[in-house]
Design a protein around this nucleic acid. Structure first.
Lengths: 233, 233
DNA sequence: TGTACATCAGTGAACGCGCGTTCACTGATGTAC
DNA sequence: TGTACATCAGTGAACGCGCGTTCACTGATGTAC
C-alpha cells in the first residue's frame, strides 16, 4: 500500500536488487514453463537459495504472479506508447497502426507473458485491484487517438447509444460522448486487437492465415474505419 | 485410427458407456478446477475406481484432454449451427447475428470448456491433428453466410488481395474469391467474435462494458458491415 | 450344450516426482545511546 | 568510537499434499471347437 521511499541503506539496496532478480528469473521461467507451472521452488533453486528464503521477498506465489502481471502490462503498454509517440501526432491512422503493430510484436517476443495477461486465468489466482490500471494502458492509447480525432474534427462519430452499453463513468474518464457508438467501437478495437494476436499465438489461424503481419494490418485498418478514422481511399 | 463399428457384445456396450462416463466426469471437473488442474486420479476417484483403471480407457491424460477438446468444439459448433439454421436462410444478417449470439451463450454456459478451447494452451499438451476439423466449425458457418451473400449478389466484396494474406487452399475450400478482402474479413470476424467473448469471460471488460449482450450485438453488426453484409439503415 | 482357452476390466501397491508453506534457528547488518 | 540491542536474511528440516504412470495380479466375460 504505502510506497517505499528510495532505498537508503546498503541492506535496502541489496534487498531491492534481489527482489528484482527473483522477478527476472520468474519471468524467464514463465517463458519456458508457462504460468500455471511457475514454481517458487524452481525460482529459488535457480538463484541458489533455499525455497523458504523467497518468502522474505514475496509473501506467496500469488504475489509473485501479481508482480509479473503488472510488469507485463506495463512493458506492453510502454512498447505501444513509444511506438505511437514516434509517429507525427496529427497522423491519427499512423498512430493507430503503430499501436496495433507494437502490441503484436511485443506479444510475439513474449508469448508466455502474453498468455499470462490475456490467456485463461491462472487456476486459483484472483487478480487484485492493482492490476487493473496497467491493464488498461493500450485501451487508453486507442481512446486517446479517437479523442484527438474528435477534437480536430477528423472523426465523424458513428451513431449509437454508448450510454446503454459502456459504463458511463468510463466514458467520462475517457472524455468521450455518450450519444454515439465511439466507446463501443474503441472497446471492439481493443478486444479485436488482442483477439487477433491471441488467435495467431495460440495457433488458431495456423493453416488459415498465411501472412499474419499483413492480416493484422488489415484488421487494424478495418477497425480504424469502424471508429471513424479517415483512411486513404 | 480405424473406426470402431457399433458395439455388439455386452462387454463392448459397457465399455462404451463407461468411456462416456469418464469423459462426463472429466468435463464436470473441468468446470470447477480448470483445464491445467484436471486430474486423472480425481476423475477415477469420483467414479469409484482405482486410478490405474482409467488407463484401460484412455492411454494417457492427454488423450482424455483431446477428447474433451474435440467434444467441446463440436458442442459449440452445433449450438451455433442450430441457431443459424433456425433463421430464414435468406436473412443473412439474422443468421450472422444468430451465430454470434449462440457462441456467446455457449461460452457463458461453459466457461471452463471455453477456456480450454480458446484460452492459453495447456502446458505440456500439444493439440493433435484431430482437433483442427471441429475447431473450424464456427468459422465455416460465417464463411458459408458470406458465400451465400456473394452468390445471391447481396454482398459486394470489399477490395483487397486475400491471396497475399490467407492460405490459398483455404480460400478454395471455402469457395471464396482470391482477389477481394472477404477471406481476411471473415477471419477477422471469427477472431473478433472470440476475442470479444474472451474479454468478457476473462474479466477484461469488467467495469468497462455495462451490457455485454448489447455490446456483442454491436460488434457483430460492425463485423457484418466489414464483410459487406447489407444492414438496415 | 460343454469345455478349454483367450481376452479384457479392474485391483492394489509401488515408483519417483514436485509443490507451497511453516517454523525454530543462526549469523550478519543496522541503530541508539 | 564502542557497546548492547533490535532487525532482518537465509538455512534446513519438516508437514501434508497430489500427481501420472507402471506392473504383476485376480477374476469375470467372451469365443472356438
Amino acid at each position: 500500500m504505502a510506497e517505499r521511499s528510495a532505498p537508503r541503506t546498503a541492506r535496502e539496496r541489496v534487498r531491492a536488487q534481489l527482489t528484482a532478480e527473483i522477478v527476472e528469473v520468474a519471468r524467464a521461467h514463465l517463458a519456458t514453463t508457462g504460468a500455471a507451472a511457475l514454481s517458487l521452488r524452481a525460482v529459488a533453486r535457480e538463484l541458489g537459495m533455499v525455497s523458504s528464503a523467497v518468502y522474505r521477498y514475496f509473501p506467496s506465489r500469488d504475489d509473485l504472479l501479481t508482480t509479473l502481471i503488472i510488469e507485463g502490462y506495463d512493458a506492453l503498454g510502454e512498447a505501444a506508447e513509444q511506438a505511437s509517440a514516434a509517429v507525427d501526432r496529427a497522423d491519427l491512422l499512423g498512430r493507430w497502426l503503430a499501436v496495433f503493430t507494437a502490441a503484436r510484436e511485443w506479444a510475439l517476443a513474449h508469448p508466455h507473458e502474453y498468455a499470462l495477461l490475456y490467456g485463461s486465468p491462472v487456476p486459483g489466482y484472483a487478480a487484485p485491484q492493482a492490476t487493473t490500471g496497467p491493464a488498461g494502458r493500450v485501451a487508453l492509447l486507442l481512446a486517446g487517438i479517437v479523442r484527438d480525432g474528435l477534437a480536430s474534427g477528423a472523426i465523424t462519430p458513428p451513431p449509437g447509444d454508448d450510454a446503454a452499453i459502456i459504463h458511463p463513468g468510463l466514458l467520462e474518464t475517457l472524455d468521450l460522448p455518450t450519444d454515439t457508438n465511439l466507446g463501443t467501437r474503441v472497446v471492439q478495437a481493443w478486444s479485436g486487437l488482442f483477439g487477433t494476436i491471441g488467435f495467431e499465438l495460440f495457433g488458431h489461424t495456423h493453416n488459415v492465415v498465411a501472412n499474419h503481419e499483413k492480416h493484422l494490418h488489415e484488421v487494424a485498418t478495418t477497425l480504424a474505419v469502424a471508429v471513424g478514422l479517415p483512411t486513404p481511399e
